[in-house]
C-alpha cells in the first residue's frame, strides 16, 4: 500500500497503544496485552529459563553420526526437499560443539565404545535421538551376536523415532518432539 505525502504512518486509532498490530496477528500477540497498555512495543517477557529453552530448541546442532541405512534418510532430511535448516538444525562434525546426537543406524558392539566416548565428549546440555528400529531396539538384527539391542543400553535416549528407515518427515517429527521436550523442561523442573 503506497503512502500519500502527509499521510501519517501510524493510523490514528492505534497511536495510543504504540504498536501496530495487523488483524491476523491479534491472537498471536494477545499474551503481551500488558505491554500495549504501558506503551512499550515489541517486547516479549518470559522467565529466563523458558527463554534459554526457546533459544536452545531453535538451534539444535546434531553431530554428523550416521552409522548405517538410516543415515541416508537423515542426509535426505538435510537436503532441500525436506530441509532441516528451517528448524535451525545444521549438521556439525565435532562432538564438542554439537547439541544433539542422532544415532542413525545399527549399533554394533565394536562401535559401542566410540559412541560412549563421543557422548561424553559432548558438552551439556545434550540430547540423544535414537533414529530407526536398530537404534531403538536392535531392529531386524535382534538375534545377532554382534549387535547391541538398542543404543539406550549405552547412553540415555530422549526421543525414539521408529521406522526402518523412518521417513524424513518422521525424523522431522522426532526433532519437533525434542523441541517440545526442551521447551517444557523448565516447567517440569518446577513440578508443573
Amino acid at each position: 500500500m503506497a503512502l500519500e505525502p502527509n499521510q501519517p504512518i501510524m493510523p490514528e486509532n492505534q497511536r495510543k497503544s504504540g504498536l501496530v498490530i495487523p488483524d491476523e496477528a491479534k491472537n498471536v500477540w494477545s499474551d503481551i496485552k500488558d505491554q500495549r497498555k504501558s506503551g512499550i512495543s515489541g517486547v516479549v517477557t518470559l522467565k529466563s529459563e523458558e527463554l534459554f529453552a526457546m533459544a536452545r530448541k531453535s538451534s539444535l546442532w546434531p553431530l554428523t553420526f550416521g552409522l548405517a541405512c538410516c543415515a541416508i534418510e537423515m542426509i535426505s532430511t538435510y537436503m532441500p526437499k525436506h530441509d532441516f535448516d528451517r528448524f535451525g538444525v545444521v549438521t556439525w562434525p565435532s562432538p564438542r560443539q554439537s547439541d544433539v546426537m542422532i544415532v542413525a543406524g545399527t549399533v554394533v558392539k565394536k562401535m559401542a565404545e566410540p559412541i560412549k566416548l563421543l557422548y561424553e565428549q559432548m558438552a551439556a546440555p545434550k540430547w540423544v535421538i535414537a533414529m530407526g528400529s536398530c537404534a531403538t531396539c536392535g531392529g531386524p538384527y535382534v538375534r545377532s551376536y554382534s549387535v547391541v539391542m538398542g543404543v539406550d543400553q549405552i547412553i540415555p535416549v530422549d526421543v525414539y523415532v521408529p521406522g526402518c528407515p523412518p521417513r524424513p518427515e518422521a525424523l522431522l517429527g522426532g526433532v519437533m518432539e525434542l523441541q517440545d521436550l526442551i521447551q517444557n523442561e523448565p516447567k517440569k523442573k518446577r513440578g508443573l
Binding site: L67, A68, G105, T106, V108, K110, M111, P114, Y141, R143, S144, Y145, S146, V147
Partner: peptide
C-alpha cells in the same frame, strides 16, 4: 573395519 558387522550371513541361516 567391522564397525557395522551385523551377522547377516549367520542370521540368514535361521
Amino acid at each position: 573395519i567391522g564397525y557395522l558387522h551385523r551377522g547377516s550371513e549367520k542370521l540368514s541361516e535361521g
